[in-house]
Design a protein around this nucleic acid. Structure first.
Length: 185
DNA sequence: TCGAAGATTAGCT
DNA sequence: GCTAATCTTCGAT
């Protein structure tokens, strides 16, 4: 089991394993360089207060996509993990663009490759992620995951933009990457 | 029904 | 560094 992601593991493990993995939607995307883990027993998680219409997908089978609206403006992309019914997930915060860069430039309206996907809202705009993707399985088109043979070197730190559990170091990044949304220290 | 908060970003000082 | 933009969600009334 070296070149697939085991989404039945806990969110921290999956968040680490995803660093370095390439994710494509209709052939557009790149290498994941930043993730954050969320869990049912986690005050900062959407699933903390139990199932609601919005977070229903988080309580479904692992290996699916959970998409939500952020600040009424942006979309954010998550992968569901742990066993069905648990309510855990991993937020994809940044990717290094490698496939379909021109397509992403069109959708974002910016030239600088560093600004295409360095943030959860930005990468969703670049990859065309909307509510329509909510609940879709990751092992079927339009999704494609390409897991590298060897494990990427990761760094970790506190999560961004939350007001609860602010000290939990469940933000992970590819060491030395210049495509993360904010530097690690 | 009402209202407050939010896993963000871009643009300006 | 600070703040406006923008609107859905959910718990409380």
């Amino acid at each position: 089991m070296a070149n697939v992601i085991d989404f039945s593991k806990d969110s921290e493990t999956v968040a680490r394993a995803l660093i370095g993995t390439t994710v494509l939607i209709d052939g557009v995307g790149g290498r994941i360089v930043e993730t954050e883990a969320y869990d049912r027993e986690d005050p900062a998680s959407h699933s903390f207060s139990g199932p609601t219409p919005r977070n229903a997908v988080m309580f479904g089978p692992p290996g699916r996509v959970y998409v939500y609206r952020s600040y009424g403006i942006h979309w954010c992309l998550n992968f569901v993990c742990r066993e069905e019914g648990h309510g855990a997930g991993v937020l994809i915060r940044a990717i290094e663009p490698t496939h379909g860069i021109d397509r992403m430039r069109e959708r974002r309206g910016v030239e600088d490759v560093r600004l295409l996907c360095s943030g959860p809202g930005r990468l969703c705009q670049a990859m065309g992620v909307t509510r329509d993707f909510n609940g879709l399985p990751l092992d079927a088109p339009p999704f494609e995951l390409i897991v590298p043979g060897r494990r990427a070197k990761t760094v970790s730190g506190p999560r961004i933009g939350i007001s609860k559990a602010i000290d939990v170091p469940w933000r992970f990044g590819l060491a030395g990457s210049m495509y993360v949304s904010r530097p690690f220290r």
